[in-house]
Simulated assay, not measured.
Amino acid sequence: MHGYIYLDIYISLDKNFLPVNLKDMLNFLFFCKSEIKVPKEFLETIGAFGINLKNPDEVIDNRALSGILVLGGDGTLLKAVPYAYEYDLPILGVNMGKFGFLTEITLEELPQVLKLWVEGSLTFDERTLLEAKYQDKVEVFLNEGAILKGPVGRIITLDLKIDGEEFIEIYGDGLIVSTPTGSTAYNLSAGGPVVHPRVRAMIITPICSFKINHKPFLIPEDSTLEVILKEGEEEVHLLLDGRTNLFIEPKQPVRFHRAKRPLKLVSSPTKSYLTILKEKFTW
């Protein structure tokens, strides 16, 4: 669950490390992995930097917010994405999970990152967000939008159009539409490629296609992809970043395209994306 942390704590950080011009408190929306024991080092660091943590569900005026602070894993960070997009805020993810492709910052790196932040010298990675539209519902996602067959397990048929042009018919368990950032998530498990986050592309990966010559492929990120479920009795889901689940009906198109602006993400000051990739996959 996310919520408040109150900062009535003893600060043990070396005061010489702190920025000289630290005057105003930084206000962050705070997302925390459920049932986590918040480390003392984390509390001491945010206290030393005068950070005020806000509950996302209770924010009224977002103009005073500096960013979003996530303590947990990639799943926790994905829950913060709609808030980051709506308020146009950068996300700082502190890794307390297992894998941590998105939550790159370690507890040891956090003081260094916050020092750069308050000094105004921190740079942000821009990650492409995609938007899914189904009927009157519109949502952005960072990793993937997956169209999946339901519990009955019957094969489903999906018609694909790219920029209005009829393309192919996918006959199988479903389809994943992924960003380069999400290429190491569900897309990779389904046989899709690892794509560097700076590549401007949308990844389309069939799930267990009945036609074995249907392989994952990339299209330009400014394309519009339309997916239409053909007739069938199977219950079909649209799952966005593992947090939003919509039921889709035959003949009702799901449209995917690039969101109006990217996500700003704080990256590790000590490790490159390629270094993290090698470490996580033990390459």
Rank of each mutant, 00 (worst) to 15 (best):
133 K>V: 13
100 G>M: 08
104 E>R: 10
141 F>T: 12
48 A>I: 06
135 Q>N: 12
84 A>L: 05
116 L>G: 00
92 L>P: 06
103 T>P: 08
33 K>P: 09
109 E>Q: 14
90 P>L: 09
108 E>R: 08
57 D>P: 02
35 E>S: 13
119 E>G: 01
67 G>P: 09
70 V>Q: 12
65 L>T: 03
119 E>F: 00
28 F>D: 00
75 G>S: 08
70 V>E: 11
89 L>K: 13
108 E>S: 12
40 K>A: 12
138 V>F: 02
43 L>A: 06
87 Y>G: 04
96 M>T: 06
98 K>W: 03
87 Y>L: 08
98 K>G: 03
96 M>V: 07
48 A>G: 15
51 I>E: 00
112 Q>Y: 09
55 N>E: 08
71 L>H: 09
80 A>K: 09
68 I>H: 13
48 A>C: 10
74 D>Q: 03
111 P>F: 01
116 L>Y: 00
45 T>F: 00
38 V>T: 10
84 A>P: 03
79 K>Q: 14
75 G>Q: 09
77 L>Y: 05
85 Y>H: 15
51 I>F: 00
121 S>D: 04
77 L>C: 08
85 Y>K: 15
137 K>N: 07
72 G>L: 12
41 E>S: 12
81 V>W: 02
59 V>N: 03
61 D>V: 12
61 D>F: 08
76 T>S: 14
92 L>S: 01
81 V>I: 14
97 G>Q: 05
109 E>N: 04
79 K>C: 05
101 F>Y: 15
128 T>D: 10
63 R>W: 02
56 P>K: 08
110 L>W: 02
74 D>N: 03
113 V>L: 00
107 L>T: 11
141 F>P: 13
29 L>N: 11
112 Q>I: 10
128 T>K: 13
70 V>G: 10
102 L>Y: 04
116 L>W: 00
119 E>I: 00
129 L>T: 12
69 L>F: 09
86 E>Q: 14
113 V>D: 01
96 M>Y: 11
92 L>D: 01
126 E>N: 13
60 I>H: 02
102 L>P: 08
73 G>Y: 15
99 F>A: 10
110 L>N: 04
130 L>E: 07
99 F>S: 07
88 D>C: 08
104 E>Y: 03
126 E>G: 04
135 Q>E: 10
49 F>P: 06
30 F>Y: 14
133 K>A: 11
112 Q>S: 09
41 E>R: 09
105 I>F: 09
26 L>F: 01
38 V>K: 04
78 L>I: 04
29 L>H: 12
